[in-house]
Computed example of a mutant assay.
Amino acid sequence: MDFRKKLVALLLALAAPVALAQPSGGAPKLPVGWYVTESAPKRYEAGVDNSAPCEGARSAYLRSLSLDEAGYGTFMQAFGAQDFRGKRLRFSAAARVQDVDGWAGLWMRVEGPDPKQPLAFDNMQSRALVGTRGCKRYEVVLDVPKEATTIMAGLIMSGTGQAWLDGVRFDIVDNTVPVTDLLAARPVVASTGPAGLDEVAPVAKNDQVPLGRVGDVWFNHGRVAADKPYTRRTDGVWVSILSEEIYEHGIEVTGTFGQRQLDLKVRAGTSKTLIDGTWGGEPVSIMLSPDTLTMKWGRLTRELQRDKNAAVDSTCNRYQVNEGPRITDQIDVCGAALGTRPPPAQLVTAFLANGFRRSTPARNFPIPQPPVLSREALDTQRTGTPNQ
């Protein structure tokens, strides 16, 4: 079967009339080939809705069954990548959402020999569907490398609410269609075998290309471009220009940053990313969600709200604090830093490098000064000692 026939088969899953079994709730089950995964059992359900599709005769829906906003669910399909290798694949669909407290979006993932290291991925989190929105077509575009083995695609929702999907299409597109891949800028870190104790591994050839960014600090798989940059050795250890080292053990990040010991954990996988632990003996808590960013270290706290109308790149969320016409604090979080599987060491380093004190953006309104109370300070013509 060639790739065109397989595309037709995929489209038929949501487009063609098929005999559907009825669950206890009375809604038709998803067509064969589609299935539901979720963060915990019985938090989400999926089915087919004939009442108000965006396109065609019916739509598939994903609905939360729990009030737990920390959960996530997806209905999805997986298929072999052999007919798409070396091509650019666009997954598009019409979607609408209702009362989504969290976020929803299309997602697609290309896997290779190691499922833990996806070759390409996008889940629309940086351009997520929230609240209630009517029908609109959305798309995710990924390159499928020659070593790809599996492609997965579907609709994801984190938090509560309901989302619908129909008009599913998979198209091979040319290079004039830009990719939305969160990993597209990922460099290949050089690896020539085991490193000696005194060897310093070279970073990626294209080490100036960002994978993600927090504030002004960008990172990729070989470099964190902070004020004192960190680079990754072939043994996986991150080393700064001051020879400070950061180690990554699964979700744990330990070592030294800013001459202070750190011991943090990065918990992601839902609409929220939490970084907690200690740095310099003081407790750290960083909470990133689609709507808020809270950063706490000891007695210092930054609490920012997302500006959804900000004129920023589509891969970024802007979080800021407004006091009247002034912006008194601002951080942009972009690319892989927004993903459900952010790289722990880079994410921790980027957030710590931004600090826990307010950062006023450039070209902002001037900071108001206390009013001038002395009469003498206003009298520019007076000379000598003022009268008392």
Rank of each mutant, 00 (worst) to 15 (best):
Q259A: 15
W218Y: 09
K272P: 02
G215E: 09
R232A: 12
I251Q: 14
H249V: 07
I251W: 08
T231K: 10
V266T: 03
G255Y: 01
T254F: 05
R260I: 02
D216C: 05
D216M: 09
R260V: 02
G269M: 01
L242A: 15
R232G: 07
E244F: 04
E248A: 08
E248R: 04
W238N: 03
I241S: 15
Y247L: 06
A226S: 15
V217G: 10
R223C: 10
G215S: 12
H221C: 12
Y247G: 01
P229C: 09
W218G: 06
R223A: 11
I251R: 14
W218H: 05
R232D: 01
R233E: 10
T234E: 14
D263P: 02
R223L: 15
E248F: 03
P229S: 08
H249E: 13
G215L: 10
I241M: 14
A225T: 05
A226P: 07
E245Y: 08
F257Q: 08
I241Q: 14
P229R: 09
H249P: 00
V266P: 01
E244R: 07
R267I: 06
A225Q: 13
G236A: 09
S243K: 15
V217D: 07
V217L: 08
L264N: 00
R267L: 08
T231D: 12
V266Y: 00
